[in-house]
C-alpha cells in the first residue's frame, strides 16, 4: 500500500478482513507478522513517533473524559479558532470537559481535530459513523480542503457512498490482502452490490 500527500485513499472491505488492523500497523501501534513501513526512503519502526508525520482516528471514542475541549484541540496543535471555523456549533464550549458532551459531539470533535492536525498523513477509521448527515457533508468538505493543501488521507468506512465520493485512490482488502483497484473494478466486488 502506498500513501501519497494530497490524495484521499479509500480502504474498503468486509468486517473482519483486517482494515483497522492494517491502519494500526501503518500507524505503528500494532505489530504484524510481515510489515515494512517506509517514508521517503527511510524505514520507520513506529511512524506515530515521528513528529508531524501521522495521526490516527480510531473507530472508538479515545479522548480522556477530564480534558477540556480547547485543551484537546491545542494539544494536537489545532487552534481552537480553526475548530470553530470548521464546526461553529462548538462556539462557547471551549471550557467544557469532554465528559459533559454527547457521544456524537465527542466523535465530531475528535474527527475535526484529527483532520485539521498539522501532519502529513491522517488515517480515519470510520469517520462518518455516529455523525449526522449534515455534519458528514461538512467533514467531507474539510477532508477535501485539507487534501488540497497537500495532506494525505486514508479512509475506511462502511458508508461507502461517502468514501467513494471522496476518494481518488482505491484499495480493497480481502482476508488480510490489500489490492489497489480502479473504481470500476471495485464496484464489481459483491461488497458493493447495492451500488451496481
Amino acid at each position: 500500500m502506498k500513501l501519497s500527500g494530497g490524495h484521499i485513499h479509500a480502504l474498503v472491505g468486509r468486517n473482519g478482513f483486517g482494515k483497522s488492523s492494517l491502519m494500526r500497523v501503518v500507524f505503528g501501534t500494532q505489530s504484524a507478522e510481515f510489515s515494512f513501513t517506509r517514508y521517503n526512503g527511510e524505514h520507520l519502526q513506529h511512524p506515530f513517533k515521528v513528529k508531524g508525520l501521522i495521526r490516527y482516528l480510531p473507530q472508538f471514542d479515545f479522548i480522556p473524559r477530564s480534558i477540556r475541549l480547547r485543551s484537546f484541540a491545542e494539544s494536537y496543535d489545532v487552534p481552537w479558532e480553526k475548530v470553530i471555523t470548521c464546526f461553529p456549533s462548538f462556539e462557547g464550549m471551549e471550557r467544557m470537559s469532554v465528559g459533559s458532551m454527547s457521544g456524537g459531539q465527542i466523535r465530531m470533535l475528535a474527527t475535526v481535530v484529527i483532520i485539521c492536525s498539522p501532519v502529513k498523513f491522517v488515517l480515519l477509521d470510520e469517520p462518518f459513523t455516529h455523525i449526522m448527515p449534515l455534519h458528514i457533508d461538512m467533514i467531507k468538505d474539510l477532508i477535501r480542503a485539507e487534501a488540497a493543501g497537500g495532506k494525505g488521507f486514508m479512509i475506511t468506512d462502511h458508508m461507502y457512498d461517502h468514501v467513494l465520493d471522496l476518494a481518488d485512490r482505491y484499495y480493497y482488502m480481502e482476508w488480510g490482502v490489500t489490492r489497489e483497484m480502479s473504481r470500476e473494478e471495485l464496484l464489481e466486488k459483491d461488497y458493493f452490490l447495492r451500488l451496481r
Binding site: 500507524f27 515521528v50 480510531p58 471514542d61 479515545f62 494536537y76 484529527i114 492536525s117
Partner: peptide
C-alpha cells in the same frame, strides 16, 4: 484502555 490512542497521537508510547 482505548484512551491510549490519545497519547499515541501525541507521539507518546
Amino acid at each position: 484502555s482505548k484512551q491510549l490512542y490519545f497519547y499515541y497521537n501525541l507521539r507518546l508510547s
